[in-house]
Design a protein around this nucleic acid. Structure first.
Ligand SMILES: [Zn+2]
Length: 568
DNA sequence: TTTGCCGGGTA
DNA sequence: TACCCGGCAAA
């Protein structure tokens, strides 16, 4: 191998000492340090290759030369263990002189320790309500993305946990006499639970979607989620998940879609009921979004009903929409924000009854409405057999999305655009996203085009750029983070692709590259998926360090991929 | 020609 | 997945 390489690359051959013969002389020739210390031995602060500057060589180099600290702070200066020539790529991972920064964006885990610490913290509190607390005030927010990621992860987990427990709790308390098995429960479907369940599902979806937000605001959230010391059989728990999943799946086509209008012969009631044998569920936790982390995803292809999406669906309900709309918006504003909803979330309940588009801000209200007006059951004020459930739907409004919806402004995230079109495998070759991002995508892909705020989809053009540390330039997620999405584009900053960037957000502003996205949008069938990137004009590793210092290049460059160090 | 890097191949 | 490279296109 080596041989081959050498042979193939004359230029390199001359310098690439690593394993090749005659390293010493070569080194000397190049002004390299005495080969004394084995290449790998190089101490952190040790020697830095004067840098056979092919061309004035990068400034980073200079600084990086001796101070590890600097290295850490600085973007990413690799420091090939002093002696420079680490033996070719292969093993470089192994050596990681803790003092010196790592080369490779993908390697520098400057925050490593920190991260660990955090994790620990989380773990510790693992199960208590206060688990978040410590994180909030106590910890100064670390900056590393890596860290962030980790945190996020753990949070998610926790939350999941939390909810489930809650679920179960109420579940059990509520229908104590119910069977515990989903199938069996189908019979009971149309019980109060059902509705709750549905709602819960919706919420789940939504939550998933906005999980990122949650993460951002975990602090806030945490305060809301109080976890009663819940214990329950794992069995139950599972069941929950399962059922939830089932329901989700079956409902994947928004309830609205398949509701009333579905059957032409729809009588007055119960017409479509049979159609949805699936709706069975157990828990009725409002805040439940079961197993967001792993489980839920598979079953959440459903379109989140949201401000936007509901409009179209509304079609079943003929005229008086205008009124509703208005009404809705009104409610929107004075609504006390149902429970745990995060600032930007509003929940409305909309009557799906034909010709009736009533929108109320409380489930009870809508139920009552349906029962009274449409089902003609006036008596049973509080009792609901779940029937109403089928005639109303919960609408989640994300204030942001609303705003967006009003003025379908362009600057919104392109990612959104990407997702919405009938689905054409957009170039989008590889995307590395955070877990949440994942769920996000899932949700959005189908038909939804809402909640633009929630996408922190991370998209890196290349895997090579996936992990670098990066502090997002312009904006930092604010615990409130509801409006950050748009602000990205401007900063032309060179932010080293990271797992936390809003999908294709910035490209639009900074570059031409994603332009084609629009194209795709307008005319889906565009086959031309592979538009070559315009190619950044900046100097890249190759140019900067020159062929001779190939090992100083960033990995990507070495791989002949898009440079990740000098991003355009 | 050089540079950047895509697409694809190999290990 | 990590690594490498042919080859194309922009500079
Ligand atoms: Zn590079």
């Amino acid at each position: 191998m080596q041989a081959r390489r050498l042979a193939k690359r004359p230029s390199l051959g001359s310098r690439r000492g690593g394993a090749a013969p005659a390293p010493a002389s070569e080194a000397a020739a190049l002004g390299l340090p005495p080969p004394g210390p084995s290449p790998a031995a190089a101490a952190p602060g040790s020697w830095r290759p004067p840098l056979p500057p092919p061309r004035g060589t990068g400034p980073p180099r200079a600084a990086a030369a001796s101070s590890p600290v600097l290295l850490l702070l600085g973007e990413e200066d690799e420091d090939e263990e002093g002696a420079g020539r680490r033996r070719r790529a292969r093993g470089r991972v192994a050596e990681k002189p803790r003092g010196g920064a790592e080369e490779e964006d993908d390697d520098d885990e400057e925050d490593e320790e920190v991260v660990v610490e955090v994790v620990d913290g989380d773990e510790d509190d693992e199960d208590t309500e206060e688990r978040f607390v410590p994180l909030g005030p106590g910890r100064a927010f670390p900056k590393g993305p890596a860290r962030a990621a980790v945190k996020v992860g753990s949070f998610k987990r926790e939350m999941t946990f939390t909810f489930q427990s809650e679920d179960v709790k109420r579940d059990s308390s509520k229908k104590t006499s119910h069977h515990l098995f989903p199938l069996a429960m189908e019979e009971d479907t149309r019980t109060a639970d059902t509705k709750k369940a549905n709602r819960m599902l919706d919420q789940e979806k939504e939550n998933t979607r906005s999980i990122c937000l949650l993460e951002q605001k975990r602090k806030v959230v945490s305060s809301n989620i109080d976890v009663p010391p819940a214990r329950k059989s794992s069995e139950e728990l599972d069941m929950d998940k399962v059922t939830a999943a089932m329901v989700l799946t079956s409902l994947s086509t928004s309830p609205l879609v398949r509701s009333p209008p579905v059957r032409p012969n729809e009588g007055l009631s119960g017409s479509w009921k049979e159609g949805a044998p699936s709706s069975s569920s157990s828990s009725g936790g409002y805040w439940s979004w079961s197993a967001p982390s792993d489980q839920s995803n598979p079953s959440t292809p459903s379109p989140p009903l949201s401000a936007d999406s509901f409009k179209p669906f509304r079609s079943p309900a003929p005229p008086d929409d205008g009124i509703d709309e208005a009404e809705a918006s009104n409610l929107l504003f004075d609504e006390p924000i149902p429970r745990k909803r995060k600032n930007s979330m509003k929940v409305m309940f909309k009557c799906l009854w034909k010709n009736c588009g009533k929108v109320l801000n409380t489930a009870a209200g809508i139920q009552k409405h349906i029962r009274a007006i449409h089902l003609g059951r006036l008596g049973e004020s509080d009792y609901s057999d779940g029937e109403e459930d089928f005639y109303y739907t919960e609408i989640k409004l994300n204030t942001d999305s609303v705003a967006e919806g009003l003025s379908s402004m362009a600057p919104v995230s392109p990612s959104q655009s990407l997702a919405s079109p009938p689905t054409f495998p957009v170039p989008d070759s590889s995307r590395t996203e955070t877990p949440c991002a994942k769920t996000d995508t899932k949700l959005m892909t189908p038909l939804s085009r809402s909640a633009p705020t929630t996408l922190y989809l991370v998209h890196t053009d290349h895997a090579y750029q996936a992990t670098p540390p990066v502090t997002i330039p312009g904006s930092k997620f604010t615990p409130n983070g509801s409006s950050f999405s748009i602000s990205w584009q401007s900063p032309p900053v060179t932010f080293t692709g990271i797992p936390v960037s809003p999908t294709h957000q910035h490209p639009v502003g900074s570059g031409e590259q994603r332009q084609h996205v629009h194209t795709v949008l307008s005319s889906p069938p565009r086959g031309t998926v592979s538009l070559r990137k315009p190619r950044g004009e900046g100097k890249k590793c190759r140019k900067v360090y020159g062929m001779e210092n190939r090992d100083m290049w960033c990995t990507a460059c070495r791989w002949k991929k898009a440079c990740q160090r000098f991003i355009d």
